[in-house]
Every structure is written in structure tokens, then in C-alpha cells.
């Protein structure tokens, strides 16, 4: 009988309990959760573009809404998570793209260090061009 023959595949139960089993897993999750803040912040920027397209009054209201305590709290959290994403990403860069020179691989610290240096210069340049200082 076909019904008796049908497979009933075993699905291993999976929960999120493992996260708290080791600090390393918590750090991994903190890194992965940065995506929620990057997504939320990008959607906020898209909303800002909408208000800009709607004219000066709408854009003024957007800037005013940015000044709410909730928005400030979100910005601080998003900044912390975004910076954590950057740090983990640049630390992984030499593993993702090992850089060979002659026989030897360039030391990982130099590849990550170059990323951190570019990050710093780029960030300062963006803040300067935006007129932040």
C-alpha cells in the first residue's frame, strides 16, 4: 500500500536555546542582529527620501521627528551595532580574501589594519563633506 510506504522524514527539533550556551554564540548573535539595525536605518533613510520628495514642509517634519528621544535612542543603538558589524567584517576580511605576495601571505593584521585605516579616513571624509565639522 502506497500509504504505508510513504516516508515520514525525521525533523530534528531545533530551538534557539543554544545561543546562551557559550559567550561566543552570544557574540555571534550580536553580530547577526546588527542586520536588523542596518535594515531599520536604511528604511529610515528611504522614508527621509520620501519626505524630501514631498517638499520642504514634509522634510522639516522628518527632521523634527529625528529629534525625538525614541529616534536618538535608535540612532545610538544602531551606531553601536553598525560599528560592531564593521569591526567583525574587517577582522574577517583577511580570511575571506587572503592576500598573497610572492611565496608568503600578507599577515592578517596588515590586511585588517588597512581596512580599519580606510574606514577611519572614509568616515572622517564623509563627516567633513557633510559639513559636520
Amino acid at each position: 500500500m502506497a500509504e504505508e510506504m510513504s516516508r515520514k522524514p525525521y525533523v530534528r527539533p531545533m530551538t534557539s536555546e543554544w545561543i546562551t550556551r557559550h559567550p561566543r554564540y552570544l557574540r555571534y548573535m550580536a553580530r547577526e542582529f546588527s542586520c536588523l539595525f542596518i535594515m531599520g536605518y536604511t528604511l529610515l533613510l528611504v522614508y527621509g527620501l520620501k519626505s524630501l520628495a514631498d517638499g520642504p514642509a514634509a522634510y522639516g517634519a522628518f527632521l523634527a521627528a529625528l529629534r525625538s528621544p525614541l529616534s536618538i535612542a535608535f540612532h545610538l543603538l544602531a551606531l553601536a551595532f553598525a560599528a560592531y558589524h564593521s569591526i567583525t567584517w574587517f577582522n574577517l576580511a583577511p580570511k575571506a580574501m587572503p592576500f598573497q605576495r610572492g611565496e608568503e601571505f600578507v599577515p592578517e593584521s596588515i590586511v585588517s589594519g588597512a581596512h580599519f585605516a580606510v574606514w577611519g579616513i572614509l568616515s572622517l571624509g564623509m563627516l567633513f563633506l557633510a559639513g559636520a565639522f
Binding site: Y41, G48, R67, I72, A82, H85, A130, A132
Partner: peptide
């Protein structure tokens, strides 16, 4: 995002702080 998002957030954070 690793290169530019933190700086972008800083720019709008400044606006949020007035």
C-alpha cells in the same frame, strides 16, 4: 555598510541632537 553606515548614522545622529 561596514565602510559607510556608521558615518551615515553619525550624520543623522547629529541632526537628531539638533
Amino acid at each position: 555598510t561596514a565602510f559607510v553606515t556608521p558615518a551615515l548614522i553619525l550624520i543623522t545622529l547629529l541632526a537628531a541632537l539638533g
